[in-house]
Design a protein around this nucleic acid. Structure first.
Lengths: 185, 185
DNA sequence: GTCTATAGCTCGATAGAC
DNA sequence: GTCTATCGAGCTATAGAC
């Protein structure tokens, strides 16, 4: 995990991973048939840990949105994991990347969760699906984008404060009838 | 540019770049001493083109924020450039990446521009610098994060709509006294 | 289950002919 | 200014000993 985070998938070598794990490069390939399979295994392991840590029930509505802001706050103490996802999610859009479908599916699921939480928190209906979807995508995007800025320059970026500000502002905008305040016609 | 965008820096080869440019790999290194220098040259060329296209004067205040939303809209027709920046900006946070200081400086400048535009558009003062900074970082972050989602799944992401929604909501929140609506204490 | 050895590539960079 | 040739290094994956 640390090696993929520090170097990205393409520039990481099995030799370095093996050394840090305390065996040889051939030893790594005994457990994982290929480098690509090792990457997807790492990502799935990461997911399983997160799910296990989340506990039995998933927070809903406003509580879920608070959970996102809290994640941004805790992430400032977990540089390794932040780096892993920031680097790999962007690298995954390159040609034939082994984690491409992983991230496609991940974003698809995240978008649905956030949109559901927004709908519930604001008491909206099917008629607002478009604006809710745009807001959900934006919340996920702001968290991802902040990570890259923060990794490059931690002192200039407060991930929790910016995430909180965006979620709060979007909630206020979605609640009221804000469709006529748009910047563009 | 296209090769770095499609493969990232590490996985791009001088041989492929040379072939697409119509000469040999040694020919490329005649003009650019190293692969790293070629990358930074590509990024600087990109910047010069954008500055030249922007014209003589830079929009200010609300007009600058409208320009950002408009950029998001135009970007949906420029997949190559979107991919170049999305891939390289995230890759730049890996160890010893040749574009690391380029992106650090770029974000530093962008943050200052957006913060200035927000301050002017809302008629705020030095006392609001913290919240304005958080909002500026968030606007840049949302644009970056949307690009990754959009590259993976264009039909599910409307970059212009989400950017517009965030900028509009943040402006409404910054204008009023919204500090007491925060999600976390 | 872990190792050594190596096959078979690809890569960036250099030297030097023309 | 562009080429061919090549060096030296790195890489993933496989074969097979122990």
């Amino acid at each position: 995990m640390d090696t993929f985070a520090a170097r990205g998938y393409n520039n990481a070598s099995l030799a370095e991973i093996a050394e840090r794990a305390g065996l040889t490069q051939a030893g790594v390939l005994h457990y994982f048939r290929s480098k690509a399979l090792l990457l997807t295994s790492v990502l799935e392991l990461r997911d399983q840990r997160d799910i296990a840590q989340l506990g039995t029930r998933r927070p809903q509505g406003l509580e879920f949105l608070r959970h996102l802001v809290d994640t941004a706050r805790r992430n400032a103490e977990r540089e390794g994991i932040v780096r892993l996802y920031a680097v790999l999610s962007a690298e995954s859009v390159t040609d034939a990347h082994p984690a491409q479908s992983y991230f496609r599916d991940r974003y698809s699921g995240l978008r649905a969760f956030v949109a559901e939480a927004l709908t519930e928190a604001c008491g909206l209906g099917e008629a607002d699906a478009r604006r809710v979807g745009a807001a959900a995508n934006a919340i996920i995007a702001v968290m991802d984008g902040l990570q890259v800025q923060w990794l490059l320059d931690p002192d200039s970026v407060d991930m929790a404060a910016s995430t909180d500000l965006v979620v709060t502002s979007l909630l206020a905008g979605l609640g009221s009838d804000a469709a006529d305040r748009r910047l563009a016609p």
